[in-house]
């Protein structure tokens, strides 16, 4: 199976990290930025790094951007440049275009001209950070859809020693435990203490919730907000 080809236009902090991570996953990555110094630095991390103007249609065509399966436009400094680059990539026939946006207006325009997905990393991170600060027992939260989330929750004290069934998580709170992460204390033969993590990916109703557990829970935002307060 041929490797998927990705294009990353704009190699700021976000774009360069996307490019590096894609390459780490074994993908072919074409990384483009107008700044030659940045391109030189990136060339050691990606399949091909090119200095080109993202709003120059011929330069983008010559760079081979049309051959990419997915292109990520991560130009944050100028909304106008981001929009023009998106339009050019679209017209060159790229099937999947992801655009990093800095505002709602930016995302609306990007979507109108054919972006397949718009993302706001800073807005999303801000939301996650606030969630973590406000609810100290929440380790992470992933948005699954408009109304549903998946959260990692430190097992509340009232559940310690109960089975999943007896805890009433499902019946009282209307959420499902889809995995259990357990921090298991260990001491090796040399007497060194450590923590090993065990993950139960298929928890049963009779599995006991222990003090050191992290519950991976899925449910509606409304239901999850109740369990966060326990």
């Amino acid at each position: 199976m041929p490797k998927k080809q990705f294009g990353v236009i704009g190699l700021g902090t976000f774009g360069s990290n996307v490019a590096k991570e894609l390459e780490k996953k074994g993908m072919q990555v074409l990384a483009i930025d107008i700044d030659m110094d940045i391109v030189n630095k990136m060339s050691q991390y990606v399949t091909q790094a090119l200095a080109a103007d993202a709003v120059d249609e011929k330069a983008m065509k010559d760079a081979g951007i049309a051959d990419c399966d997915t292109v990520i436009v991560s130009i944050g400094e100028s909304v106008e440049t981001s929009i023009l680059a998106t339009l050019i990539v679209k017209e060159l026939g790229v099937k999947n275009i992801i655009v990093k946006c800095v505002s709602q207006w930016h995302s609306r325009v990007a979507a109108k001209i054919g972006a397949d997905k718009v993302i706001y990393p800073e807005f999303e991170m801000a939301k996650k950070l606030v969630e973590n600060i406000v609810s100290t027992n929440i380790l992470s939260q992933i948005e699954l859809s408009k109304d549903y989330d998946l959260i990692e929750l430190i097992a509340p004290k009232i559940f310690w020693g109960s089975t999943i069934k007896d805890s009433g998580i499902r019946s009282n709170y209307g959420v499902n435990v889809i995995a259990l992460r357990r921090r298991v204390p260990t001491v090796d033969d040399n007497g060194n203490a450590d923590i090993k993590e065990e993950v139960n990916m298929v928890p049963c109703a009779d599995d006991e919730i222990m003090q050191n557990d992290v519950l991976v829970v899925i449910g509606s935002r409304e239901a999850l907000s109740k369990i966060k307060k326990v």
Partner: peptide, 12 residues
């Protein structure tokens, strides 16, 4: 101190 850290981490 490290072991206290481990214990505290284990307990959340």
């Amino acid at each position: 101190y490290y072991n206290i850290g481990l214990t505290k981490e284990t307990c959340g």
